[in-house]
Amino acid sequence: MTDKTDNTTEHPEVRFIPPSYRLKAKAPLTGEDLGTVLARAEISLNRHHDEFLGKLKSGMASLQQAFDALLQAGGDETAVKKLDDEAHDLRGLCGTFGYRTVTDVCAILCAFLENRTTLSASEIEVVRLHINAAALAAARQLDGSTAEGKLVLDGLRRVVAGGTPPQGTPLNGA
């Protein structure tokens, strides 16, 4: 893995080191079907589903607390950062356990918060819609491919883009 070969003639300051096939030799292909192996791994992963639900519950509570603090603080920088961190954590976790829409809502929220250090009153209302949407998606394990899920996600994207959600979007008071 460390044998170095200088095979560069055009750019003498660049050195190429040939790839090592040590891992390929150490992990040869088995006779087992990959689909079967992955399905088995999915089953193992799902054994943590109950633990995930606990993480989801505490994560949603932390997101709500971060939003409440944001309201108290009037959208200041520290509160925005805290809210972004909480949304980021949920975004990275929920899709693994079938809560893809929570991940998608949090992704839209994180994108909205990116490059914003403080929030105006109207921007805080945009965040509120995301908090409501995340709570709704978590409570109903909303699937983004269903009509309701699409309505929520499309509504948030329209709001973030500066528009208003279409009528009937279940974002307020979820």
Partner: peptide, 18 residues
């Protein structure tokens, strides 16, 4: 798994520059 397989089965050469 896909990424693990990529580093195992299709290792890339390394590049050293300043």
């Amino acid at each position: 798994y896909e990424k693990l397989e990529e580093v195992i089965l299709h290792p890339r050469q390394f590049v050293e520059t300043p």
